[in-house]
Design a binder for these strands. Structure first.
Lengths: 115, 115
DNA sequence: GAGGCATATGCCATGCAAGGAATACACGCC
DNA sequence: GGCGTGTATTCCTTGCATGGCATATGCCTC
């Protein structure tokens, strides 16, 4: 949310970091970015066993970046990007730094153009 | 740099992710955000042994997020935020999503106000 | 060039996260 | 109520990253 990207919230929960560590979990996030999917779909898309996939989904659930909805025997997972805003907030101060660098580069280019 | 935050580069290198996993490494980044520091300074600031600190610095160096400069026996580390732009690029599609949510929320609030 | 300081590296032990296999659980259908 | 499908959980093993300790390396001073 807005207050998160303003940097007021400060600390990124460990759960969020641990989500990002794993490539498979990042892959799941990207798949869910497209549309909600049942577990079986994810299993097919990733090259992973069903139990392994379920375990990753558990981590994602605990971190709050996905939500489950039950549809008969299937469980459909949906992306909830909100917690990632914390990550964005964490990144903000660094973003300022590399933007400063870009500004410097920009001025340099302008100056050389004038020469 | 610019091309990174434009999202052209796509994949965040594994090295960047592995940097972020560790709380101590994130702490080092934050310390260096303030100003460049020698290893000894970092050892004091973190609650870590000197060897452990050096190992983390190695990881950070390999990922390209810090640079070293030698000053007699001391090595002064400086933050280089550029590679973090890749992370920013990775985050971009998700940012769009939570912004969309905020817009929805905004409209909802506007509507209820009108009622 | 010997000794002392600052940092890096090697080796070892420990802990922990990830994946596989088997199994438990939940739901719908006949 | 038994059965098949879809998903979660448990147990176990393995690999890997972390940190401490000891030690190597580099540099400066006397």
């Amino acid at each position: 949310m807005a207050y998160a990207s303003c940097g007021i919230l400060g600390r990124v929960p460990d759960a969020i970091w641990s989500v990002l560590i794993d490539p498979n979990r990042r892959a799941i996030l990207e798949l869910l970015r497209e549309r909600p999917r049942a577990v079986g779909e994810l299993v097919d898309a990733l090259d992973l066993s069903q139990p392994a996939t379920s375990k990753h989904l558990r981590v994602l659930r605990d971190a709050g970046v996905v939500r489950v909805e039950q549809d008969a025997q299937r469980r459909v997972y949906t992306l909830d990007p909100a917690p990632l805003a914390e990550l964005d907030a964490w990144l903000a101060p660094y973003r300022r730094l590399w933007n400063a660098r870009l500004d410097t580069l920009g001025r340099y280019l302008d100056d050389t153009k004038e020469t």
